[in-house]
Design a protein around this nucleic acid. Structure first.
Lengths: 201, 201
DNA sequence: GTCTTCATGTGTGCAGTGTAAACTTTTTCT
DNA sequence: AGAAAAAGTTTACACTGCACACATGAAGAC
C-alpha cells in the first residue's frame, strides 16, 4: 500500500452483507417496496452496483433475508413486556398487542413477510424464524378452548384460529380496510370474545 | 387503403382495456406478479408497447383495476351456493367456504388485493367492490355474539373479528404457513368454535 | 359531403433495473 | 513467498415504466 491518506475507503467493505440489509430495510420503510432496488442499496452503502451479487444470489435472496430479520423482530415485539410477566393473562395480552404493534410500526416489512413470490418460502433461515414466532403463538393458543376432535387436531385448530385472527387483524389494519370509527377504536384484544378464553391453567 | 386482405388487423383494437386486463390476469396467475409487465400484456394482446398508456395512467392503475375485478369475483364466490339457500347456517357456511376457495383458486390475485403499495387504495371503483364484499361478511357476522360495548361497537367488533379470521386463514393457507398435517385437514369452518355462533335469529 | 376533432393507436428515446461475465484487489491459507 | 479464495470493479445486455411526438381512423359539425 502506497501510504496515501490513512483513512481512505478500504477496498473490501468488511461487513457489506449487513450493511446492505440495513440500507434495504431503510429504503423499504421510507420509499416503499416498489422503490427498493439492489442498485440503490449498493450506492447507499457506497459500493459498486453489482457488489451485492457477492452476498445475495439475487434480489429475492435479499428480500428473504429481510423477511427473516422481520420475523426475528416480530418475535422480540411479542416477547417484550411478556417474558417477565408471571401472570399468563398478562403475557398473552402483551404478546398479541406486540404482534399488532410490530405490523403497525413496520407495515411494508410485515407485508413482505407474507408475500408469496418475493421471498423464497423454502429458505431454511426464514423458516426457522417463522417457527420461533409460531412457538409463542402456539403456546398462547392453549388458552383458547372449545374445539372438537382428537387432542392433536384440537391443538392445530387452536393455533390456526389464533394466528389467523391476529394476522388477519394486523394486515387489515395496516391495509386500511377498517374504516368505520367504531372499528378504529377496537384493538386486537377487543375483538377476541372473552368466552373463548380459558383464563386459568 | 389499398384494399389488401380484407381481414387485416384494424388500427383500433376496439376493446383494448378489457383485453389488457384479461392478459394481465392470465400473466399474473401463470407467471406470477414479478413477471407481470405492461409490455408483456401489450404484446400478448398484439398491440404496441405503449398502447396501454391510453387506458391506464400507469402500472398501478392497471393493478388496481385487476384488484377491483378480484373483489368482484370474490363476491361471486361468496354468493355462489349461498343466495338460494334459505337456511341461514347454510348461507353462512357457503359464503365463508367460498371466500377461502377464491383465495386458493387465485392466490396471486388475492395477494394483490391486499398489497399496500401496488394498488392505489383510494380508487373509487376498487373501494366500491371492497364494500360489496364487506356487506356479505358484515351480514354473516351478525351470527357471532358475545362482544361487549354499545350496539355500534359490538357490530364493528363482530365484523372485524370475522373478516380478520377468514382473511388471516385464507392468506396463511395460500402462503403455506400452515404446515402440520393436522392443520392441512382443517377448513375455515373447523377453526370457528361452535360456541361462538348464535345459530338462531 | 367535407372538415375538424379527438380518442386511440405507433415509434422513439431515456433513465433505471437485475443479472451475467471478465477482470482486479485484498485476505487467507499452506 | 506464493497460491487460492473472497470480495470488490467495470462492462454489457435484455428488459422495464414512462414521456413525448406523431399517425390513424371514427364521429360529429357545418
Amino acid at each position: 500500500m502506497k501510504t496515501k491518506a490513512k483513512d481512505t475507503k478500504p477496498y473490501h467493505h468488511g461487513n457489506l452483507r449487513d450493511a446492505l440489509l440495513t440500507a434495504a430495510r431503510r429504503l423499504l420503510e421510507t420509499e416503499g417496496h416498489s422503490d427498493l432496488s439492489l442498485r440503490k442499496c449498493a450506492t447507499a452503502v457506497g459500493v459498486s452496483a453489482t457488489a451485492p451479487q457477492n452476498h445475495f444470489a439475487n434480489k429475492a435472496a435479499l428480500l428473504t433475508a429481510l423477511a427473516a430479520q422481520g420475523y426475528a423482530e416480530l418475535e422480540a415485539y411479542m416477547r417484550r413486556n411478556s417474558n417477565e410477566a408471571a401472570d399468563r393473562n398478562v403475557r398473552r395480552q402483551a404478546a398479541l398487542q406486540g404482534y399488532v404493534a410490530f405490523a403497525q410500526d413496520h407495515p411494508a416489512l410485515y407485508e413482505l413477510m407474507f408475500a408469496r413470490d418475493r421471498v423464497s418460502s423454502n429458505d431454511a433461515d426464514l423458516m426457522r424464524q417463522v417457527g420461533a414466532c409460531f412457538v409463542i403463538l402456539a403456546d398462547i393458543s392453549k388458552d383458547f378452548g372449545q374445539f372438537e376432535g382428537d387432542p392433536a387436531s384440537v391443538d392445530a385448530k387452536r393455533q390456526m384460529f389464533l394466528w389467523s385472527l391476529v394476522h388477519g387483524y394486523a394486515q387489515l389494519l395496516t391495509a386500511n380496510r377498517f374504516k368505520k370509527d367504531a372499528m378504529l377504536g377496537a384493538g386486537i384484544l377487543d375483538i377476541i370474545p372473552d368466552m373463548l378464553i380459558e383464563s386459568g391453567r
